[in-house]
Design a protein around this nucleic acid. Structure first.
Lengths: 218, 218
DNA sequence: AGCTCCATGTAAGTCGTTACATGATTCA
DNA sequence: TGAATCATGTAACGACTTACATGGAGCT
């Protein structure tokens, strides 16, 4: 459901094609809500069916053999978007493969466990750097999108508009930092546990010969 | 894909029915990977088709008019599980409705924005409390599941087994704490921004009259 | 007789991924 | 002429949700 609102937020700034939206997504929105271009095109068609946006097909190029389909937001689209912003966000159930796996790292070798945490840390370091670069742009009001948004709003609202976006991105940075700290603590944990142990054999023997006839719950 | 490995990890401890798995999920695994019982049943069937588990249908009750289907793990199942633990976890694309919405809170009123952050904080406070209770149990090795797991493993591995689980749950607690701090900062932000402003009207006028003919990207 | 728990599913639909497919335009 | 970019999609599949559906077992 969120994809359509991410799209509406962009289309609200002016007519936009699926292609342009896909590009904008890759540049900025992807930090908060990523989407493939194929999904964007199909979602736009569905939104058109539901009357949230209107397509105005345009000839493209000099010979006009191709067309593009810029979408403009409708009143119903504006209403749906603002309603979404104003209503409560139901909490999403937690589902995290990295943490699930971390729970069972005794089935890996110490070396593999360490490597998993290293990758986790590296990923979030990269992510944090990207987010920080983006916050920088936001604070200088130097993104195309933000400029458009501010231009369309009364000056007395500008501080709030920027502040909400910066706050969201700072939250994601804090989250990445928490992940980095967690991964680092994981590395330290592996180092502690593996003192004097064999690094390349599983912590727990893989062919566990437990009683296969006993049920999990009694 | 992760659901099946969460299931395999449990079935590895001994034959288990879908019903039992659904219960165990609700008690503990749900903090890391939640699943509906309907999904568990269908996934078990698929795993059976693929030879990762074997069902041994059993009569149930004295009259034996009903059956249950405990699943036992196969060698292929054990191999698939350990392979999953040992291989790299591809990073998941970020997709968070709360943060997406936080980016556009200027379309809500200050009061609504504040309320959103309050709910976010409350949710993660509850979650943190549950996770902390669970870590307590883990550290005392007082959960049914952990006892079974330790009983099936050599004593010299016990510290590592417990430590990995505690580390994962502590990571989730840290994450909840980060969310709480973020939500609190959001509340403070709203309080600052709304000084001397109208609390119940949108920060940005909802009927934005922007130039509808200008494209988003130029 | 009625309630709770045990136990197992199906069906329809949404959301998202990956791969495939096509062709025009622009510029060097 | 060829490459990059603009531009729009379809098809198949996988993961998950919500709602529906059924009925036995155990206990009071």
């Amino acid at each position: 459901m969120s994809l359509r609102f991410a799209l509406l937020a962009l289309i609200e700034l002016g007519p936009t094609t699926g292609y342009e939206l896909a590009k904008v997504f890759d540049q900025s929105v992807t930090h908060v809500w990523s989407a493939q271009h194929s999904q964007i095109y199909t979602e736009l068609r569905r939104m058109e069916d539901e009357g949230l946006v209107e397509a105005r097909p345009m000839p493209r190029g000099e010979r006009a053999l191709a067309t593009k389909r810029p979408y403009a937001i409708t009143d119903a689209g504006v209403a749906a978007f603002t309603e979404w912003v104003r209503e409560r966000t139901p909490p999403v159930p937690l589902r995290d493969a990295a943490y699930l796996k971390a729970t069972y790292l005794e089935y890996a070798t110490f070396r593999e466990a360490r490597e998993q945490f290293r990758e986790h840390r590296a990923h979030h370091e990269r992510q944090r750097d990207e987010l920080e670069a983006h916050v920088d742009l936001l604070e200088h009001r130097a993104t195309e999108l933000l400029e458009r948004r501010l231009a369309a709003s009364p000056p007395e609202a500008h501080d709030a508009i920027v502040a909400f976006k910066v706050h969201a991105y700072r939250g994601l940075i804090a989250r990445s930092n928490a992940e980095i700290a967690w991964a680092q603590a994981g590395i330290d944990l592996v180092d502690t546990l593996s003192v004097g142990a064999e690094l390349d054999s599983p912590v727990v023997p893989t062919a566990g010969k437990q009683d296969k006839n006993r049920s999990l719950l009694t």
